[in-house]
Design a protein around this nucleic acid. Structure first.
Length: 579
RNA sequence: GCGCCCGUAGCUCAGUUGGACAGAGCGCGUGUUUCCUAAACACGAGGCCGCUGGUUCGAGCCCAGCCGGGCGUACCA
């Protein structure tokens, strides 16, 4: 706890009769520094004391004297407002950041605890489409955030490499497949076969039957089915890894549904033994306690498993291997029902850890479509023919970034122009997907996704790069011991208040599974810095005529840079030294 | 039909867990580069916080009902 809050708690314990922890929790921030730096709302006290909150605030304020850390204490309406001694505050905040370095914002609160993250999970033999982006970048950001908090994190990519769709791919390949064409452009070729077969299958029982047969063959271990399947999986994963590399996303394990398929027999047997499974309409199902909810099917009438069965087996296996304290499924909101059912099934299997499993839903991608003459928003999906490939978007983003470089910078300003353009373009894409509350649906839109101005990833990268530019020109070392009294501009004080919030922001973003909270905070920092930076008449950071002042401002700039770099890295955007 | 989610400026969204006067970006209009990177900054216009009731000292936030949009609703994942 920072010494200023500790001091306030000490002052208030006696007059309020509250414990220090409760006081600290109740403290809020006034809307404007002119009103104070910390505020204690007296509303709750009003009930107990049967007096108006404003009166209580005034009484307490009258009895308190300023301290070396708190220069002014005053009542303002129902609030008791505290003003910090600004030089001491700056020393505390900037000193802490300087000392902790890259660890500022991190903590050890998750030490000894394990969280499993299930995210990304693209479908094998299908191209990596734009709507796979959200789960990928969200999962990655949450993974990073919890790692900062000291948790042991396990990232698993639950590849869609099994199930009915695979029956379709195999059936389609049997019908028209050509291994030579496959070798040329494997994923595009397979996707084409799948989409085409799937379309025809809609009203053709024979085609459906053949797809089912192939799935059954696969599940029964038929040699040819397995050979082709293995080939498709390998080719796909190779492709995915290229995309992940560009996005800067990594997984601890690639374990597809196939990995867990072999463990489904055991789950089915266990469910039967425990008497929670029953046969209904030829399928083996587990009914839900709430009759309004449909049951889950753990074995289809044709004997094949479903994704639920594999999810159950996966959860069980993961618990046995990692003994997780929490498992997070970063999956679209349209699968909410599935996870409710899955978690209830796990609970009824008697797994006490079922309550540690959590679905982290996010809004889906919608696309605009003409339906009956009017434009409607509909779910984007492969079956609907939504064709935007993630890599197309990444390429376009990098191209546009490169164009901006060509327009604005002299040839040779960058050692590796393309690398910078790639980082900027991809930073824009990633940030765009993380900046909003995750539950909101998003309508796919090239322009907003590829914008580099305003509330965007490049805006943050730019602020970071500018600070790096200042530090580069300054040349000297950043010193932690400076004359903090020289940082007497209100903007500098406000900046320090923003920086002080960082550890709370990290914790809150993790707790609420909302990287957007961190994204919004980083925008605040960058905006404040850009404003400060632009006003050269008032505060040039590096000024050879004022070495002491410069040293102090350089420290401030370096602290901003550190928080930006740390936060950007956490959400998966690459901080750049030049751009 | 039923369930869940969303509804705040022309558009896209924040809103610190119910508190001080509702904030940004985009777009539009007008300005700022002998300066530490103009991917930036300054100023301006723009609001029935979907509607109606309720709870509360206090509601954009909580409850109920309606309206609009989206998703889901047993052998796809």
């Amino acid at each position: 706890m920072n010494p200023f809050i500790k001091e306030i708690c000490g002052l208030l314990e006696e007059p309020t009769g509250l414990k220090a922890g409760d006081i600290a929790a109740a403290l809020t921030t006034p809307p404007d520094s002119a009103m104070g730096d910390f505020a204690f709302p007296c509303f709750p006290l009003a009930k107990v004391r049967k007096a108006p909150p404003a009166k209580i605030a005034a009484e307490i304020a009258a009895a308190l004297k300023p301290t070396p850390l708190l220069t002014r204490i005053e009542a303002r309406g129902p609030y008791l407002n505290f003003f910090v001694e600004r030089t001491a505050w700056l020393r505390e905040v900037l000193g802490t950041i300087f000392q902790e370095g890259d660890k500022y914002g991190a903590s050890q609160e998750g030490k000894g605890k394990t969280i499993v993250f299930d995210y990304s999970a693209p479908n094998v033999a299908k191209e990596f489409r734009i709507f796979h982006l959200r789960t990928t970048v969200l999962g990655n950001a949450l993974y990073n955030l919890y790692r900062m908090l000291g948790y042991r994190c396990v990232g698993i990519n639950h590849l869609g490499d099994w199930g009915t769709q695979f029956g379709v791919v195999l059936a389609a390949f049997e019908e028209k497949g050509d291994e030579k064409k496959l070798a040329k452009d494997p994923i595009r070729y397979l996707t084409g076969l799948y989409v085409e077969y799937n379309r025809r299958m809609g009203d053709d029982g024979a085609l459906k039957g053949r797809a089912r047969e192939w799935l059954k063959k696969l599940e029964d271990g038929d040699a040819e089915a397995r050979r082709l399947w293995r080939l498709f999986v390998d080719l796909s994963v190779e492709d995915f890894k290229r995309v992940y590399k560009r996005l800067g996303v990594r997984f601890d394990y690639y374990r597809g549904e196939s990995f867990y398929f072999e463990k489904t027999d055991e789950v089915i047997r266990e469910a039967e033994e425990k008497g929670i499974a029953e046969v209904s309409e030829g399928a083996l199902v587990i009914k839900m306690r709430n009759d309004d909810l449909p049951p889950i099917i753990i074995r289809k009438s044709d004997g094949a498993t479903t994704y639920v069965t594999r999810d159950m087996a996966a959860a069980k296996h993961r618990y046995e291997e990692f003994e997780f304290d929490r498992m997070l499924y970063v999956v679209g909101s349209e699968q909410k029902l599935h996870f409710e059912q899955l978690f209830e099934a796990l609970e009824r299997m008697g797994y006490e850890w079922a309550k540690r499993c959590l679905h982290i839903p996010y809004g889906i991608y919608l696309e605009l479509q003409e339906v009956d003459g009017e434009t409607r928003r509909v779910k984007a999906g492969t079956r609907g023919g939504f064709k935007v490939l993630l890599e197309e978007v990444l390429d376009e983003a990098a191209d546009r970034a490169e164009r901006i470089i060509d327009e604005n910078y002299e040839e040779g300003f960058f050692e590796d122009k393309r690398r910078v353009a790639e980082a900027v373009g991809i930073g824009a894409i990633i940030f765009n997907d993380l900046k909003n509350t995750r539950i909101k649906d998003v309508v796919f839109d090239w322009d907003s996704m590829l914008s580099f101005r305003g509330e965007t990833g490049p805006y943050l990268q730019y602020a970071h790069a500018r600070i790096c530019g200042i530090l580069r020109k300054w040349g000297g070392d950043v010193r932690g011991e400076v004359d903090f009294a020289l940082l007497d501009d209100p903007e500098e004080f406000e900046m320090s208040k923003l920086l002080a919030r960082y550890p709370d922001v990290i914790r809150r973003a993790a707790e609420t599974y909302e990287p957007s909270a961190l994204a919004g905070y980083l925008l605040e920092i960058a905006t404040a810095f850009n404003k400060y930076y632009t006003d050269l008449t008032r505060h040039r950071v590096a000024d050879e005529n004022a070495p002491d002042l410069s040293a102090a401002r350089i420290l401030m700039a370096d602290c901003i840079r550190r928080v930006l770099a740390s936060g950007l890295t956490a959400i998966g955007v690459r901080p750049l030294e030049r751009m």
